[in-house]
Amino acid sequence: MVKTKSEVAYQCVITIFILLLMFAIIAPFVLLIMSSISSESSLIRNGYRFIPKAFSLDAYKYILRNADTILRAYGMTLLTTVLGTSLSLCITILLAYPLSHRDLKGRKVIMFLIILTMLFHGGIVPSYILWAKYMKIKNTIWALILPNLLLNPFFIILMKNYFENSIPTSIMEAAEIDGAGPIGILWHVTLPMGKPIIATITMFTILTYWNDWVNALYFVNNTKLWTLQYLLENILDNVQFLVKNSKVMTQMGQSVANIPSVSVRMAIAVLGVIPILILFPFFQKYIVAGISLGALKE
């Protein structure tokens, strides 16, 4: 294509707009990170800044010295993410695979029941009462895994459609003739060939569990079960929480007044996003694929 003057001008304009957009997206992250490596006294004098007046790693050293609360929360998040994601994947696959059989009797009814859960919700109150009073999951690790997060109806439909439309029936039939049962076909054909959709849904499920704080808000009082996100939620207004719950602190006789609270707050938040930022380059492809799929039917 011949480059006309107006084309060049247009490219300049959109390049500037895109750069501005990228800046607007990135800048808040930069502010967060810079605030966490500023010295406490400069923060108190000048506030959070994009370019700190004085750098310092005191906040991180402080956290390292009082790591027990945070490490515990990290552990809980990791445990719920691994357990939740594995369970969730298993039951999603086990539900989507039979539904991908066109000749399965009752398939339409089951699909309708799944879609209905996306259209009508019982609401928070009955759901809360059910899980808290009848299933008695309050203050157990199940509270962080079971309510609402375990099975996303939309993912079942995505996976069922992929199994049904992207895996050639001829391969299934060949396996059947070889004497493979449903479990054999699932294991040797469907799972290997369904990798793209399984990977995408895995990524989104990991993110769901890693980022969840609502289940803890509703069902968990016991601080030992706090996940990273919920710990962060509590620390935002009350940095002292870290001290109250830190055995090391009381033994060392440090007082609340010594916490570099302005920078520590941001340093903890940075520790909360770092795993995601590190994994992001690997996730990115699947996330984009998943978002585009969501365009079809969410």
Partner: peptide, 29 residues
């Protein structure tokens, strides 16, 4: 494309920290 989906991955808790860095009465930018 990669940059603009970054916020999508954040929890709202982290997001509330970022907003706090802007709006905190004493220390906000």
């Amino acid at each position: 494309q990669v940059t603009i989906i970054l916020p999508e991955l954040l929890s709202l808790v982290i997001c509330s920290y970022i907003v706090f860095a802007f709006l905190s009465q004493e220390n906000g930018i």
